[in-house]
């Protein structure tokens, strides 16, 4: 007691020193962060100004030229004829959405299977876990476009399948990681209960794991579906088909009415899906907790 009182000023001094060193470290970090940010911005803008055909100041004033041109063309058509173009491209839109749906479904299935092997709590073999995880990382890292373009080249002629395949692979990687995280966070007690009955590994997964993770799985999958609709539109732009391809053609033809019709379809679909997925997810997560 006595000694602690005599040590007090000493301790306070040490505390103050430590506080100061912390503050110093913080300001060093701040300066460092600002320096790096500034470096990136300056280099980047320099690079961009060099690489762009149109300098920034000139381009900025022209941002709305293209949308304006297209909108004026669409306006000149009148509503009924413009609406007919919207109807005209609805099948293409459905095709794109279906591409996303199929690849999300396939990705869901493969991810759900692979996730079991990527989770330490249900797969005891460490090597299998590590290998599965690394391959999921690999699937996720490939930009879809690389796979899609290569397969598009290997399949002579037009086909939707390269895009489906590319999105499938990416979805497997993305969902597989989330699914395995979900599995690793489950309550272990039902599993132990099942284990005590001596049931097989598959029934353990079926009755011990799936009921716990399925709502979360669906919630992730629906978010993924939204992302995949965007992706399949973009891949269509590179010749995979669907509304993306229609958009690319119509832009080349400078058919403003049709371009605006396609933009309209895309934006409404994406916003609708956005709200839908928000709503379904809140229901699913709500039902769970």
């Amino acid at each position: 007691m006595n000694s602690s009182i005599t040590n007090l000023p000493n301790n306070l001094g040490r505390l103050e020193l430590e506080l100061k060193s912390l503050q110093r470290r913080k300001s060093i970090y701040t300066v460092f962060g600002i320096a790096i940010t500034a470096l990136i911005v300056v280099t980047g803008i320099d690079l961009a100004n060099e690489s762009n055909a149109t300098p920034f100041s000139q381009g900025f004033t022209k941002i709305f030229d293209f949308p304006k041109d297209m909108l004026v063309m669409a306006w000149d058509l009148g509503f009924t004829r413009w609406w007919a173009r919207v109807i005209e491209f609805t099948p293409d839109l459905l095709l794109t959405v279906n591409m996303a749906l199929l690849s999300t479904f396939l990705g869901f299935v493969t991810a759900a299977i692979l996730a079991c092997f990527a989770s330490q709590n249900i797969c005891r073999n460490k090597a299998v876990v590590v290998i599965t995880r690394r391959s999921l990382d690999l699937f996720r890292s490939f930009p879809e476009i690389v796979i899609a373009l290569i397969f598009l080249y290997l399949i002579g002629g037009k086909s939707l399948l390269p895009a489906v395949f590319a999105i499938w692979i990416h979805t497997t990687g993305a969902l597989g990681k989330l699914f395995s995280e979900a599995i690793e966070n489950i309550d272990i007690k039902p599993l132990e209960g099942l284990e005590s009955t001596g049931c097989s590994w598959i029934s353990k997964v079926r009755f011990g794991v799936l009921p716990q993770v399925l709502p979360l799985y669906f919630s992730y999958a629906i978010l993924r579906l939204e992302i995949n609709v965007r992706a399949s539109t973009i891949l269509g732009f590179f010749g995979a088909g669907g509304i993306g391809q229609a958009l690319s053609t119509m832009i080349q033809w400078r058919d403003g009415g049709r371009v605006v019709a396609i933009f309209f379809l895309l934006v409404t679909t994406i916003i609708a899906l956005d709200y839908l997925s928000d709503w379904v997810r809140s229901k699913l997560i709500g039902a769970r907790s």
Partner: peptide, 27 residues
């Protein structure tokens, strides 16, 4: 919502017309 809904694809098309090929378009 609108910014998000218009999507990267359409934004890039618009900026591609304004800035031409180059980094600004992507940025």
């Amino acid at each position: 919502d609108t910014l998000r809904g218009i999507d990267t694809l359409i934004w890039s098309l618009i900026f591609l017309r304004a800035f031409g090929p180059g980094l600004f378009t992507g940025i």
